[in-house]
Design a protein around this nucleic acid. Structure first.
Lengths: 206, 206
DNA sequence: ACCCGAAAGTAGACATTGACTAGTTTCTAG
DNA sequence: CTAGAAACTAGTCAATGTCTACTTTCGGGT
């Protein structure tokens, strides 16, 4: 990797890594996925990136800052995946919701520790970046639900509340699955049930 | 290490603490509540209990074992509180469910870090003790829901699934509140909405 | 009453880690 | 070209979890 380092330190590695921040985040995500949050060490990340143990500090003031960045990226990716799944699944509103919920659960199963991080209780609440990334996810969900208004599934004034409710439900099911309270297939069935009952309930109540 | 001769330690503190395990758990719970999980240190707990830093090892082989014990106690207490709230709130089935959901959310707000712990993703799944404590909570919920069967709210064969669904929903709402995505009062309103829609949906679907 | 093993606790050691600091190298804007 | 900022190195420190060897106390069986 010494493309141009005609005069690096001891090794031929250039002084500046180039994109250390992104590499650290990627590696951290892998560690999180494979060995859990307790195994996530700044020093180990630095070692594997081939930089000194102090280098990460230029990009993340704290271990916590690294975790926040991971959570933020998590929200962005989750929103992307949900949008993707929805766009790939045209059809009636129920089908769309199922696709969204299913994508959410898939993400949870693939990245359980990351999801934990995303909804972790912080002493002083979430950082600004995490909060706004979470809000963007919520906006995505709201957009999906909004289609139901046009389809006559619910009133425009209720979309916010109902989006929150359905999101919470899917998040709760995901928590049951990732904490191994129920197996994944049962979680998937539960998502379907949830959406069926949700839609029936909403239309019955109003 | 007979630096202090044949007598006990310098202080008049007896060699055996007496109920160190319980004291450690209580203190740990307080730390968890007030300063979060990152501030939870075995050595600090030992210091404040007035024992050596190795003493906790007699009761908890690991920091993880301590956390498991906390999670287990958390499930037991949550189940107790829900039973309590339900017993104190007679009335129709909807009211009972609201009392249960409300108690769940109150617990979550009071002990957010503990709830995180209870549903944390562990690399190798929950320990046996945690798992069975969680199952006892689920049994409690099932019992509450079972009353609805007699009241004709749902079929006996659906109780398991529906209990899971409602539990997940309340857990998800709690996660939204403890992660500061929504304020507590909104969470409370959401629990009410959830139960209303749930009951309406269930009776509409079957 | 005694003994002996198990349980509970002490103390010391060790590697690892997060965090901080001072100094060095590279980049970049003016 | 240069000055200052950004990125990185290297050293240090206190704290922690974990392990081990040892000591004290407890309690049951004879």
């Amino acid at each position: 990797m010494s493309t141009f380092g005609y005069r690096g330190p001891v090794s031929d590695r250039p002084f500046h890594h180039g994109n250390l921040r992104a590499v650290l985040l990627d590696q951290a995500e892998t560690v999180l996925r494979e060995r859990g949050i307790d195994a996530l060490s700044l020093r180990e990340l630095a070692r594997e990136a081939g930089v000194s143990h102090g280098a990460p500090r230029s990009h993340f003031i704290d271990r916590n800052a690294l975790l926040d960045a991971l959570a933020e990226r998590g929200f962005v990716r989750l929103a992307d995946e949900i949008r993707d799944a929805v766009s790939r699944a045209p059809g009636d509103h129920a089908r769309v919701l199922r696709a969204a919920g299913s994508a959410y659960l898939r993400f949870a199963v693939r990245e359980p520790a990351l999801l934990d991080l995303m909804f972790a209780t912080k002493v002083d609440g979430p950082s600004g970046a995490v909060r706004s990334a979470a809000e963007r996810l919520f906006d995505t969900m709201t957009g999906i639900m909004g289609v139901g208004v046009e389809a006559g599934a619910y009133d425009a004034g209720d979309v916010g509340r109902l989006t929150l409710l359905l999101s919470a439900t899917v998040q709760g099911i995901s928590a049951l699955v990732t904490s191994r309270r129920i197996p994944t297939p049962q979680g998937e069935a539960l998502v379907d049930d949830a959406i069926t009952i949700f839609l029936a309930g909403v239309s019955a109540v109003r």
